[in-house]
Design a protein around this nucleic acid. Structure first.
Lengths: 339, 339
DNA sequence: CTGTTAGCGCTTTCAG
DNA sequence: CTGAAAGCGCTAACAG
């Protein structure tokens, strides 16, 4: 009638006792229920429900050697990254893909000066079954950490070292940039500047390459460019610099919408009308572009889908499969009033 | 010379053997090193380093009954929340506060239909040592879940039920709203509308109260208001509605900068000039406000600090202290061109 | 289908 | 200061 052990978290033993079966049977019933008689199953289910049994994950992990959780690694929590819609989108994509499973999401915010060894170490501590790496920079040592660790990992965004064995999902940044710049060329612009992303990120380089591809093909000069760090402020600054050196520019392709926003401000400050005097195209389309004035023509970056896809890749990996192929999403030009 | 067990993760036993001490001594040396002779300590440190030893957390958790991780619970990953700078700021604040510790951050994205019991259950599974709840809605059942669980928890943003025992950090939303509206009154506006936040969030209600406080005190009508959900689109919609019903309005206080942005668009679409015809004030100042056109007068919401503070509260709780006081941050009016 | 038997790797009394 | 012993709660062979 009255249970001996009171409020403490019930253990499997207690459930088994309450159900009148052995611990093993209780365990089997609780996990999948293979090879368990209907009555035993029912008794265990009932006992577990009555007692409010919740398996202790540490104990389970200890023996299964799985943690049922995966980590999302994002870089240092500086101004940019966590306010960036990019991370928000990634989070959403990861969350969505995980919803179908019962994996938990661990957010690892990689600290600034921290050596990559720390991550490698962390991974080896067996905290997570897999890793998604979100915003990878050239020298962050994440590739080595991943390669050195037995924990499956995937990148969202092409890793720098195209090392064999590094799996990733990405958008075709170069093709997207080409679409953007081609659009500018097609609408009659001839002096097309570029506000590039950081040179230590693949997306930055690829978008710049796409820009110069088109200009070169069109026989136009590809010399007007300045770099930013994907932020509004850096876009503003870059645009100001560009205007100083190339006052004749009639279009600008910014490697992110945030930088395009900064550019728009700078153009306005310099009395240039958009799109009459200068056409502007961005990259990302994560929400801000549509609500800018004027609405920004941009290249849609399927961040959420990419993140979900990366998780799928990871799940495939976790299921024991090898040779998971890299996935590259097609970008899509979204034409709005800024051009 | 050669170790027997090869690539596998070294265990404490192996470290102990390599150091020529018992497992207990090795364990002590590895944790704090109380009551360990200098030589034993050195031997263990050395062996651990050489072997690349990393303690297995599951095993440790099993016996210590701690997980060294805390969870950040955020609501469903809908459009709004994860693109919202508010969550970004919260994440940053939490990350910053955790940087000093070696606690890990678990992100729990509460799914939509999911019963609060699931969270309660999760908490009882012993996955985390504590919880920070980020964006709490009236009927999400989080308060009950927290109260029903033995796991320490704190809210960022006042919980609805002012139940004894619920700890939180917040900004004084009502006071902030008062400052905003008072500013509008002081600059001569007399027909001040409000775009309110959702009625199922404390911040939404409190800001509305602040708005009506001032209008009532000033003898002005507090009847022009519409509600949104803190999004740009809903702000646009609300503003449009307000203009239809109250074409004479000469100011609007929006409960978030995002909604203010939407309002700005709507005002522009209706040919109203800001601030000449209509003054606009927002709330949050998380970055967008400053870069709007015109730059938005707003109330600074110290989200990052609040999140850090919440973590501090949680750490205090975890250290065994009781009666951790609630903290309420003062808001601060930031005047810009939109008024 | 079920129970018994061993641990998973670690911390922690408790005697020395 | 150190080591031996005893589990933490769970799963996974292995015989029945």
């Amino acid at each position: 009638m009255t249970t001996i052990s009171a409020t403490a978290q019930p253990t499997l033993d207690e459930v088994a006792a309450a159900a009148g079966v052995s611990r093993s049977t209780a365990s089997r019933a609780l996990n999948g229920g293979a090879r368990v008689s209907p009555q035993a199953q029912a008794a265990v289910d009932d006992a577990a429900a009555r007692l409010g049994y919740v398996p202790n994950r540490a104990a389970r992990s200890l023996v299964t050697r799985r943690t049922d959780s995966i980590a999302l690694v994002v870089p240092e929590p500086d101004e940019r990254v966590l306010s960036d819609p990019f991370i928000g989108g990634t989070l959403r994509g990861v969350g969505a893909a995980l919803a179908a499973t019962d994996l938990q999401l661990l957010l690892i915010i990689a600290r600034p000066g921290e050596s990559p060894r720390r991550l490698a170490r962390y991974l080896r501590a067996g905290h997570v079954d897999g890793v998604v790496i979100a915003s990878h920079h050239r020298e962050d040592g994440l590739e080595e950490a991943v390669l050195a660790s037995p924990v499956p990992a995937v990148f969202v965004g092409r890793p720098f070292a195209a090392t064999e064995g590094l799996i990733y999902t990405d958008v075709d940044n170069r093709a997207g940039a080409r679409q953007a710049v081609q659009h500018l060329v097609d609408t009659g612009r001839t002096r097309i500047a570029h506000i590039a992303g950081p040179a230590d990120m693949a997306a930055g380089l690829d978008r710049r390459d796409g820009w110069s591809d088109v200009l070169t093909d069109a026989g136009l000069p590809a010399d007007a460019f300045a770099s930013g760090e994907f932020t509004v402020a850096s876009g503003h600054r870059a645009m100001t610099d560009l205007l100083a050196v190339h006052p004749d520019l009639d279009a600008v392709f910014a490697a992110s919408d945030s930088m395009a926003l900064g550019a728009l401000e700078a153009l306005r400050a310099h009395g240039r009308r958009v799109p009459e005097d200068v056409s502007v195209v961005g990259f990302d389309d994560l929400g801000v572009a549509a609500s800018m004035t004027p609405p920004l023509t941009t290249v849609r970056n399927p961040v959420v889908e990419m993140a979900s896809c990366a998780v799928e890749q990871l799940l495939t990996l976790l299921s024991g499969k090898r040779d998971v192929p890299t996935v590259v999403f097609p970008p899509e030009l979204v034409v709005r009033a800024s051009t």
